[in-house]
Amino acid sequence: MTAAQYFYGEIGADKLTVNDAEIRARLQVKGDYREVMTDKCLINLQSVIRCAYSAVKVPVVFSESSVNLGFGEIMSRNLAERLKGCDEAFVFAVTLGYGVDRLLSRLAVTSVSEHFVTDAFASALAEAACDYTEKILAEGLSCGRRFSPGYGDLPLFYQARVLAAVRADKTLGITLSDTLLMSPKKSVTAILGILK
């Protein structure tokens, strides 16, 4: 048996850039979204981000209707399709940290507009962090498109196993509520197939 391969890294807030189209959609804005207030929100947000990822490289074993990534059978046709042709995959989690949660709970009291805008930026930056992690892990490899619990027919309850596999509680402080919500709120998990 080979030992699991773990990866951990930190990502500076300056490495995360907001995708314009995404932030427009989140803010429900069509044209230019930048103004004094949104700029202030983004700067404040960036100052509290503490972004890190944790990943594990796992073998992919297919059976008739499920996939096994070394932490039990996963019943999901969509995931199986996404991992088609892969012998190995990365399972990873990435988070913006608890500072963002604290900022958001404070804004929930002081300003609903800043809360809304900051939350939208934070969600967009969490996606950006996911893209960045993927870029680091996939360097020199050819990878498929990432897939996450909660997408398609992959139920959210697999989140617990995914987080355990990447030791997210220890490395990133990510925990799961009884209703399967992650803390810190702006955290993402994903499975990324490695094509040969």
Partner: peptide, 13 residues
């Protein structure tokens, strides 16, 4: 749809 949600919220505040 002439005004966006962030603007609506700032006005409300």
């Amino acid at each position: 749809k002439k005004l966006y949600l962030p603007q609506l919220l700032m006005s409300a505040e």
